[in-house]
Amino acid sequence: MMEALSNFWAVYSNVVLSLGTNSLLALSIWLTLACGMLAMANAAFMGIGAYTSAILTMTFGVPFPVALAGGIAAPALMAFVIGKPTLRLSGVYLAMATLAFGEVVRIAILNTEDITGGALGLNGIPPLTQWWHVLLALVAVLFGLWRLRRSKVGRAFESIKEDETAAGLMGIDVGSNKMLAFVLGAAIAGLAGALNAHLTFFIGPNEFGFDRGVDILTMAVLGGINSLFGPVLGAVILTLLPETLRAFGDFRMVINGIILVLIVLFLPKGIWDPARMRQWFGRKGGAQ
């Protein structure tokens, strides 16, 4: 039994730990969506966190906890800086502005070869991420967001999401709450990037581009943004689906896409929708 578990972990450890880092990414964008913002900069924030932590450990030899702290602080600070002008926008305009920021980050990485390795990326990152690091980070973030959601700040987020104008008239500081959600989301994405960088040993600029940003958004929307469990479920599905369909070879991405389209068509509020669950269980209980 122990030998079988050891063999499984040797083969699939990266996939299992990717479940945790992808869940953190999905939660990072859930936080901005919960405040009514369609911000698409999470992949860029992940990249900033990954490169910052990797440079700290490879170049300066700092302890891993300090590198993780740097990977959290750097994207949070950048989010605060760019949040001032961009968070005045909303909807598709905010999405376009944050996508443009992501492209700026990618180009900056490509053109700072002496620091980031440019197009070749950074190779030989110390494999410092352990399974308990990822588990502890995910549990801490889930607990923190759960407390936040039930706090005064969480209720302010919900009010802004439902009607920003009405929330402002009720005395809620819309700008400050949006900035808080944006910065916290960036910090969580940076944490995921820092953990992932010291898990995969290599990072490159193409890992944090538009495609990664779409994947992060899809995880949250697929699972459902009306609860904290939804983004985690979406991350698990999108991480495991390509692996489970590997036997189909070149057709696996087609099947992957078809499954996702069917889920979006028939479950528009995501797979995990608390309102639908209560309705379904209530109907089942009434039938009995």
Rank of each mutant, 00 (worst) to 15 (best):
M1Q: 09
M2F: 13
E3L: 14
N7F: 04
V11M: 10
V15H: 03
V16R: 01
S23P: 02
S28E: 11
I29P: 01
L31N: 13
A34W: 05
A39S: 15
M40A: 12
G47P: 11
A54L: 02
L56Q: 03
G61H: 02
A67C: 09
L68M: 07
I72W: 05
M78V: 15
F80A: 15
V81W: 10
G83D: 02
P85A: 07
L89T: 13
S90Q: 14
G91D: 13
L94D: 12
A100F: 09
E103L: 03
V104P: 06
V104Q: 03
R106I: 01
I109W: 01
L110S: 05
L110N: 10
L110H: 02
G118R: 06
L122F: 04
T129M: 03
F143T: 09
R149L: 02
S159Q: 05
I160W: 04
A166R: 06
A166N: 05
G168V: 10
I172W: 02
A181K: 09
G193D: 09
L195N: 05
N196K: 06
A197D: 12
L199W: 08
F201E: 12
D211H: 00
D211R: 01
D215A: 13
V221T: 11
G224K: 06
L238N: 05
L238P: 05
L241P: 08
T244A: 15
T244H: 03
L245P: 07
R246V: 12
V261T: 04
L265A: 00
L265K: 13
D273R: 07
P274E: 06
R276K: 13
R278F: 05
W280D: 03
F281E: 09
R283F: 00
